[in-house]
């Protein structure tokens, strides 16, 4: 029995490890699943991370088709905002706040429109031409464009 048990054990260990790894990956995927979303008529389906940063930093006033970019965000302290900014953009929320405040209080730009809930954010993006925002996952029930950030 002993040799059998010792033979089984090595087979079980990798399985347990792979199970844990799979669960971890699923958990990480669920944590990092935030997506950049835009109004359905926006004709952009992917952006580099640096390009996405510039849109959120309000440095890009127009989409390639000429329509004005309208950025919607959640409050700085909202968990989805923090996850999106750190996970997808690779920035810290305070950096975006600093950039937006500089634009706002020097008159050199406009700031994103802050909404109170993820649902309102998706609804605003779906209903505002040229809108850009984010969601925890591809939002069901709304017609929005998912922009892949590479």
């Amino acid at each position: 029995m002993t040799p059998l048990a010792s033979r089984r054990a090595p087979r079980l260990r990798p399985s347990a490890k792979s199970l844990i790894c799979s669960l971890l990956l699923i958990w990480m995927a669920s944590v990092d699943a935030q997506v950049l979303i835009a109004h359905a008529a926006v004709e952009v389906d992917h952006l580099t991370q640096n390009e996405a940063r510039r849109y959120l930093m309000m440095r890009v006033p127009r989409w390639p088709d000429g329509h004005a970019v309208r950025v919607f965000v959640l409050p700085d302290e909202h968990v989805l905002h923090r996850r999106f900014v750190t996970g997808v953009l690779g920035l810290y929320p305070y950096q975006l706040r600093r950039v937006w405040d500089r634009l706002l209080f020097s008159g050199t730009g406009q700031v994103p429109i802050t909404v109170t809930s993820p649902h309102e954010l998706v609804r605003s993006v779906a209903s505002t031409p040229g809108a850009l925002g984010y969601a925890d996952a591809p939002p069901p029930g709304f017609e929005v464009r998912i922009i892949e950030v590479r």
């Binding site: 006033p61 127009r62 329509h67 004005a68 970019v69 209080f105 008159g107 050199t108 730009g109 406009q110």
Partner: peptide, 8 residues
């Protein structure tokens, strides 16, 4: 989209 007017 190309023109912003601002005052404070």
């Amino acid at each position: 989209p190309r023109l912003l007017l601002a005052t404070q």
